[in-house]
């Protein structure tokens, strides 16, 4: 299928979803299930004073900060574990424990120990994401090609060339995989973190709207934020993936 026809299909599919939503709203005829028009109106109202944009920007900044920290630390830990079987035996179980700790527990502990601060919020989100990244990157680091490593040794490539031309390119597929699932996970957890301990951001606004049973505002924030995240995915992540994969047949 061509890109154009794929886009058309997606648009049609989304349109159908809107239609179903509209019909359901008519049928329910309740402020608890507002239709697309009401949600759009709520979105405009929130955007008028700049509150919508500001809160989305704040939340995105938190997503970006914790995402970058988690990718860096998670990759470093994962690569170290993948390269050293000894280290993996020692610390592998820790990663599993962390991986299975509910996100909520980590968030609560961070707020309890570090206070209701920005640092605590970002730490909580990062810690939630680090074990996922570490596990994926460990798999990549353990599967590095011996053949290419030997080639690099014979030709005395040196540390920097080895890293840049031999090692990192082999880890790229694993890095993109964890970045992709990472973004999806991070922005969901950021909302919870904001709801529990921040006084701004999309998560905080959702909580306020919830307390007032303003479902239209909840949906307005949710849709606007999802759209922004999708744009980042399509506009940033996917082109980058295509670029690093251009050598594939």
């Amino acid at each position: 299928m061509s890109t154009a026809s794929r886009l058309l299909m997606s648009a049609l599919s989304l349109l159908a979803l809107m239609l179903v939503w509209q019909v359901a709203a008519w049928w329910a005829a309740s402020p608890l299930l507002p239709g697309p028009a009401a949600v759009l109106a709520a979105m405009m109202r929130a955007a008028e004073g700049g509150a919508l944009q500001r809160n989305i920007a704040i939340t995105l900044a938190r997503v970006a900060a914790s995402f970058i920290i988690a990718m860096l630390l998670g990759s470093a830990i994962g690569i170290a574990l993948g390269r050293s079987p000894r280290l993996n035996e020692l610390l592998g179980p820790w990663v599993i424990v962390l991986l299975n700790l509910p996100a909520l527990v980590i968030i609560i502990l961070c707020y309890v120990w570090f206070g209701l601060t920005e640092a605590a919020a970002i730490t909580a989100v990062s810690i939630n994401k680090i074990p996922n990244v570490a596990v994926t990157m460990r798999e990549g680091a353990a599967a590095l090609s011996r053949d290419l490593d030997e080639m690099a040794r014979v030709y005395r490539l040196g540390r920097w060339k080895l890293l840049r031309h031999v090692t990192l390119p082999q880890l790229v597929p694993f890095f993109t995989a964890s970045a992709r699932s990472g973004l999806a996970l991070t922005w969901k957890i950021v909302l919870v973190v904001e709801l529990l301990g921040r006084s701004n951001g999309v998560g905080f606004e959702l909580q306020t709207a919830f307390q007032m049973f303003d479902v239209a505002l909840v949906l307005a924030y949710a849709l606007a934020f999802t759209a922004v995240v999708q744009l980042i995915e399509i506009g940033l992540l996917q082109p980058w993936e295509r670029r690093v994969n251009r050598w594939r047949r």
């Binding site: 030997e150 080639m151 014979v154 030709y155 031309h165 031999v166 390119p169 790229v172 050598w247």
Partner: peptide, 24 residues
Amino acid sequence: RIAYAFQSPRLLPWRTVLENVALV
């Protein structure tokens, strides 16, 4: 200074032919 033409080519698939040669 050792050069080794391995039994299999062992090229870097993510680098162009020219980059593979210039690498050393």
